[in-house]
Amino acid sequence: MTPFTTVTGAAAPLMQPNIDTDVIIPIHRLTGTARETMGQFAFEPLRYGADGAENPDFILNRPAFRGAPILIAGANFGCGSSREGAVWALRGVGLRCVIAEGFGDIFQGNCYQNGMLPVTLSARTVEELARQAVQGAPFTVDLINRMVISPGGTSYPFDIPPLRREALLEGLDELAQTRKRLAEITTWQERDQETRPWVWRHLPQATKEGST
């Protein structure tokens, strides 16, 4: 996973609440598109008109925000479907960080799996940042010090679970981390097969005459 330490650049304000992952990447783009090329379809319903031409009013189409690494979004960003393609599409247009009052839980988890930093701040702070972002002046998001620094130099501290912060800073692969614990997992499973045998299909006593 790509590590995240600090990012500096334009922050695109997209303050509509409840932007769902269907809008971030439409479903029909998930079946035939490679993960690396999903960026072209990010925000497709907002970014392009029905004729396929770019919608000049959409924030990421404006010259100041093309390739912006930061998005300032309305509440409940990334709600809805669990599709990880939403994060791949955002990464594909160059985004590394989304700042919002709150995120869809599954989307937020997917961000952490892909080197994307979700920053949660109060509604009031997000509004304040969005106002300062409209001209495209650069913000810095500093994960080391857990700060968003506005173009005017004001610092806004944010919280992030320490485990998630460490994984992002180091670019850690969760699976590699977990595989160090395989012995612990096996021990747990052996005990569980005695306490909850009905959960374990391969145990002959868990099914009637091995009917499954």
Partner: peptide, 17 residues
Amino acid sequence: GIGSTELVHVLATQVLR
């Protein structure tokens, strides 16, 4: 529900963080 990366994680280990 989980994303694809977590799905691979759980298939390969039977656990999740």
